[in-house]
Design a protein around this nucleic acid. Structure first.
Lengths: 94, 94
DNA sequence: TAAACAAGTTTATAAAATAAACCAAATATT
DNA sequence: AATATTTGGTTTATTTTATAAACTTGTTTA
């Protein structure tokens, strides 16, 4: 009847991050913070969770002399996102 | 950019309960438990939260000699449900 | 009469979400 | 030059949540 909602995606901020990454292929920490409106601390934690799950890849480097964190969605993450949408539909298409 | 997701609805079980009630106008505890697959304890807690928020009304009585809990969605709840859908869309607009 | 069942509720605990505090380096200010 | 502020984060602490387990109250069944 109702499909289970992936707990990793069923979180406001993580969903927002994934939503950005689905549409832009690559986004850095600052862009994600600004586009989601999240605090840096919260974003840092949620990026780590998505990364640990293999839903996004994270690349840390230096841009000039400042740290720079680039994120992109993985194929696993993309699939999970699509499945989450399918699952959500079972709560509405009736 | 992203609309805030009503925390009362952004919960798997509460969303399932609301989803049932949107479509059937009245449902009792047992029916909700069976149709959502939830445990009674969890359902009891979440029904109480939805009720406290004014999203559903709860009517307790006896059916024969057994307790009987009837739930229905309120207009407030219905509005909140629709707004939740609208908010969700901002995470998927493509 | 005791065991099992029904319909819930209460309580305990693990997991999440989030903000606050922190850090190291760079840049701006006095 | 010394101090303050900003940048780009991370770590820690705290409050909420979600959830299952245990419990309650009463009923039916063996």
């Amino acid at each position: 009847m109702f499909k289970k909602l992936d707990p990793l995606l069923h979180s406001e901020l993580r969903l927002a991050v994934m939503s950005v990454l689905v549409n832009c292929e690559e986004a850095d920490f600052v862009y994600l913070r600004e586009s989601t409106g999240a605090t840096a601390g919260n974003l840092s934690v949620q990026i780590e969770k998505l990364s640990a799950a293999g839903y996004i890849s994270v690349e840390k480097s230096f841009k000039g002399k400042k740290p720079h964190t680039k994120c992109r969605i993985t194929t696993t993450g993309f699939k999970a996102f699509e499945e989450y949408i399918e699952a959500l539909k079972t709560y509405f298409n009736r």
